[in-house]
Write a protein that binds this DNA or RNA. Structure first.
Lengths: 335, 335
DNA sequence: AACGTTTTCGCAAACCTTTGCAGGAAAATC
DNA sequence: GATTTTCCTGCAAAGGTTTGCGAAAACGTT
């Protein structure tokens, strides 16, 4: 009924708490006979050591804090999956929070994680985070800290990213090689640096290809479904519509694909499409959607690994891991 | 540099720890002047209360343990999202584990959560869990415990489910109303009771409609993509192929849709399809996929709410919440 | 000045574990 | 029989917080 502690076992056996503790740890100082009795009673009572007390003693919890914009974005779900695998192997657990793209909530959650004395924090900044004092506070407390996917140039810390500039550049190059001339870019939330870098990659690729840079073909969308549809609509209705679109996310590209289909546009002849993230369903669409694959699960494992690396080495240099992304050409570009 | 505790503040101010504690809690016993000094110094030193110590004192952590088969299944990602929202409002955090459909891992994680003294556990059993002693152990410790989505009849506890029998029944009724005669069922992992119940709903609906029950049209698939494709292939290649398929998950139905399309079958005339889960992409497929919507996010919020309800009331009766599922008829059944 | 009341604060216990050190008892050695 | 050695076990501190209770100080009243 009540909580079983070392004390419970000690009292029942008429020995001291420290003996019980050592017996359970198979300490050589303890007589075999005593050990046996202790272990048996512990099993009988279903004793589980109290992590809380241990953590208090060690002044840190065996938990890694994770803050992502939204757990249900497939990329983050996969990344968390990867972190969980590494953490589990190290005997750690994950404390997972979602910022819901809200800057204030991000701050609150960081404070909460600090109060919980997590051993490390892994974070992808929200779309509305423009100040970074709260991130500096993590570092000033010497808590191992890793940024992944959504970077933040102003902060110097370990990072796990892909080369967004290069990924966008190559996507555009692919479109150019197919003879596309009026290539549009549907970017994500403007404050997100990964969105900015993808846009820059897009711009640089156009310049590289000697194509005209048309600002009307560059749009930014937030996450709402309605805004996305409206922006796509405007773009397709313009007097000189694009013949190809590169988007910030698959969510946008998938929607564009359906809307283009409904308008009777031939894909990819009239309009080619490339998305970002390579969600599993991309290959099920008609036509299947070309997309840039990001190693989401691996991002998670690498981020977690960096935390433990920092945790286990006295002096530690920040590490920046750039994982390979890969364009997956499919029906929406290759006819 | 070093850890800031109540003691640090107390020493600096030459007062006792308990006074500092009370001052920060705005206890009426403390003089305004003292409070002001304490609060100011606390802010200056960026004091964050140590949750670990508090939790040890209260003999429980402010965390809810969550075990799901896989975080990256959209249904679980959404459900976790819902739990997180409720937990956050209550000042709690989520400890998230994934069993990866592994029975042994599920046991290990439950023990680990118990050792962490979580305030409650929310669980969806793995596909390979056939014994339930580990779940009983949770209850014998009086830890609030909620099962969601994947039920387990042998355990009496609070639950958040949908009526899987009814959902499958109505899906079949829909297919029958379209004139379908040879309706197949592609079930999930055989040990999962939700899979069994969906199958039973399917069977009962056929009987109700006066249709022949053909065991060859009932197949079970595990989660691997290859097995799914092979099973679908066999089904479509049989001498008397089905004219409709109800599947355990959207993942299966989506794949069936693509394979049928590739074979030149007309959907829904030659083959109608209904999936389970109503994933967002269903409406983007060609034709769009009919599916049974499950309120995943709401399952999460309700499950979390039940934990807190149990946590906050001395005597508590188990509660079983059946949420409404809803058939979303689309192109794969409605031409 | 004596007493009562209120205001303000500190002591100490409790939560559970780990671990350095000391100490007791038995065994071994001289 | 005395001393050393070996083996086993217990004491106590530490980690940070909350809180009941007691006590000191300040104030008010007669």
């Amino acid at each position: 009924m009540e909580e079983i502690s070392l004390k419970t076992i000690a009292n029942r056996l008429g020995i001291s708490i420290s003996t019980v503790s050592r017996a359970l740890k198979n300490h050589p100082d303890i007589r075999e006979e005593t050990k046996k009795a202790v272990v048996q009673l512990a099993e009988e009572l279903e004793y589980e050591p109290n992590h809380l007390a241990f953590q208090l003693l060690k002044r840190k919890s065996n938990a890694i804090g994770v803050i992502v914009p939204k757990i249900s974005y497939p990329l983050y779900a996969d990344a968390i999956s990867g972190m969980e695998a590494v953490a589990e192997a190290e005997g750690y657990q994950l404390l997972i929070c979602q910022s819901n793209e809200d800057y204030q909530k991000e701050i609150k959650q960081i404070n909460s994680l600090i109060a919980s004395r997590v051993s490390g924090i892994i974070l992808s900044v929200s779309a509305h985070t423009t100040q970074y004092d709260h991130l500096l506070r993590i570092q000033s407390r010497n808590i191992p800290f890793v940024l992944f996917n959504r970077d933040c140039e102003q902060i110097t810390c370990s990072k796990v990213l892909i080369d967004n500039h290069k990924a966008a550049f190559e996507a555009v190059r692919h479109l150019v090689s197919l003879g596309k001339q009026r290539i549009a870019f549907l970017g994500g939330p403007p404050h997100l640096q990964i969105s900015q870098r993808r846009e820059q990659g897009y711009r640089d690729a156009l310049t590289w290809a000697g194509l005209v840079l048309n600002e009307e073909l560059i749009q930014q969308v937030e996450f709402s479904k309605e805004v996305i549809m409206e922006t796509i609509s405007t773009l397709l209705n313009s007097p000189l519509p694009p013949d190809a679109i590169l988007t910030y996310s698959d969510q946008i590209a998938q929607r564009a694909l359906v809307m283009a289909r409904q308008r009777g546009l031939r894909i990819p002849q009239d309009l080619a499409l490339i998305g970002f993230n390579d969600e599993p369903v991309d290959e099920l669409l008609e036509p299947s959607l070309s997309s840039i694959r990001q190693p989401a699960y691996e991002m998670g494992t690498e981020a977690a690994r960096l935390i433990f690396k920092e945790l286990n080495s006295a002096k530690f240099a920040y590490e920046k891991i750039i994982l390979e992304s890969r364009l997956m050409p499919r029906g929406s570009t290759m006819g």
